[in-house]
Design a protein around this nucleic acid. Structure first.
Lengths: 203, 203, 203, 203
DNA sequence: TATGAATGAGCGTTCATTCAT
DNA sequence: GATGAATGAACGCTCATTCAT
């Protein structure tokens, strides 16, 4: 019933996947066009029909990765929570979704954590704005909590956003070095949850 | 003629400084030996008398940077705090010391945040163990708190260590993009403190 | 269905025109098959049905251009002049015809003057023989004049042929850089005529 | 007695010679950096220490060639001749000097006649102005003759300049294809002389 | 010890040519 | 016949490294 023939996938996507795999393995600078060509089983020239140059492949890869992260949590509305409890639930859900993504697409995460910074030296805009956007996104949750009265008013939402994201990033990065991801998932999410909502101290 | 040469600083250190400056500006891969030579006012060959190769300079730079961070907080004993309040004081002091360091040596921080990951692709051990060490260091504070009874026992110290370090890293990275560092210092440290000890909720 | 297809022009000719236009603009080596394809509105492969390769198009272009020059003056019989005056008339007519051709088809001339030499590096025969032929053609006029007694006998007709052609070529090349071609025409033809028949000196 | 050590020649000059040889043989576009390197017995990189890029070598070659032509006839003052006879002498001398140059440095001439036009497509200024300069130089002789009254006043000096240069160029080009250069020299110079000063007709 | 000219492996990129559709 | 996506040989160029001075 579909007009789109099966088995025909976007060629750019196929190339991005191959490039993502090799770059995740060897790193952006150590990866040659020849490596990507070999991985894909195609000639060098084929890339240059779909990407302007090597940097373009890398940037597309980072943009795609950021997009997938955004998509993964797109259905969490920063303004939906009406209580600290509901926000806590959201944090738990978001944490799990990001875990799922990293587990499903480790290449993506590896490129993001190891190479994005280096790539960004050439084109600072891409990553810079992504970090800002992510910070603003988390900040929106905090601001909502402050408006509704269940989050401390003296905190600067933007700063909290960056700090929380820092914890999350550290978790995702760590995930790439762990054997049993599921084992880590629970303890990590509980830790973030506790830090955000309970503090270290107490009973 | 002097057995105690005055004004003779370690040549390695001088080269490291020059390299650090250029790499902080242009990024590791975009920096050529020629750039460092120009910065130092010396011939290319001079480097190869003090460093094995380009990668060696970079790695030494990262190691030195990590060392400086460690030195900055070396006098904070993970086992000294006897109460949550004392630990809170320690966290505040450590935060300020790291801020001081980043403000004093932004090149160092820039290399660490932008290039260390890329450099680590060639020699994963350096950075990997540093992250582990830093995590273990922070974890030691948590473990001390648990032993003394003022930190929740259900938390995994190692995970908390990584999460807290993630927040701190995010802060340092952000610091590099901010005009007025002092303005940011207070709000950032207060945020970390609040997250660690009070939680978002409350009055 | 018609045995005499109307409106069907030789496809080779159409391609040659397109190629001639682009090569005249950008030069042979800077022109890619893609440029010619774009100019023609056809796929790359189409060329390879009509021309063996890129060089073949270029050579055909040069051959065609030389042919057109030859055609333009084909009705001037080297043996028809019976006096210096008649020869002088012929020279004037030939000059005008070549001017007409260059004005009508500047692309052709541009290819000939700028690219033919470079193209000839691969296939020296084409242009070499053309130069020889042109020399021989002009020489035939001289030889006729010598036979009939109105041209100095001590001159080597072949050398005179090449020298005269050199003047004519210089004129055509110059024509491509001039705004008002008609203004140039008279003075150029008069100059060649004077040099050939009167010499610089005298009243 | 010389402060300049013997055997130490300008490296640029050495490279230009090697490049000139190879380019004269194979043509500019067919010549790779590798070919020049092989001819010189040096690495590729060496070129890039002395020339910005391939085009720079080519342009330098053309500029040098043009300079040598200019130098060869530099001591012929366009204003020195006081009579048609003296001018005729000058023309003969200039012709011989250019012949000498082409015979002594055929590579130089080959590059000029075969490749300069193609090179000029990228950088039209170099050759364009050279042609203009050469034309103006020859024109100065004509103008001098007109001022002194021994050259026809109705001729446009500039046009004559280009026409005469056209003859000379044709001669030099021809010289490259001839076995016995000396045999050609006399007949060529006499032909040009006759055309310029006597005309074809007459006894 | 210091130098920087020389090196050449290796890279990213282009583009004439092919051939399955 | 016409197409244009795919190809990969071949190119110009860079830059980390060496070594004669």
């Amino acid at each position: 019933m579909s007009a789109v023939p099966q088995g025909v996938v976007d060629k750019r996507e196929v190339i991005l996947r191959a490039a993502g795999k090799v770059i995740a393995e060897k790193g952006y600078h150590a990866t040659g066009i020849a490596d990507i060509a070999r991985e894909l089983g195609a000639g060098h020239g084929t890339f240059y029909r779909y990407f302007k140059n090597k940097e373009d492949i890398a940037r597309s890869l980072v943009v795609r990765a950021l997009g997938q992260m955004q998509d993964a949590i797109a259905d969490e509305d920063p303004q939906s929570s009406r209580s600290l409890g509901e926000y806590r639930e959201q944090v738990r859900r978001i944490g799990n979704k990001l875990f799922d993504l990293v587990v499903a697409e480790p290449d993506l995460a590896r490129v993001l954590f190891y190479d994005a910074a280096a790539i960004a030296r050439t084109d600072p805009g891409v990553l810079g704005s992504a970090v800002e956007n992510a910070g603003a996104y988390t900040a929106a949750f905090i601001r909502n909590g402050q408006t509704r009265g269940f989050v401390r008013r003296e905190l600067d939402p933007q700063v909290v956003g960056l700090a929380v994201n820092g914890m999350i990033l550290a978790g995702c990065a760590q995930l790439l070095h762990v054997r049993d991801a599921e084992e880590m998932r629970t303890s990590w999410i509980r830790t973030v949850e506790t830090l955000m909502f309970d503090g270290l101290g107490g009973t």
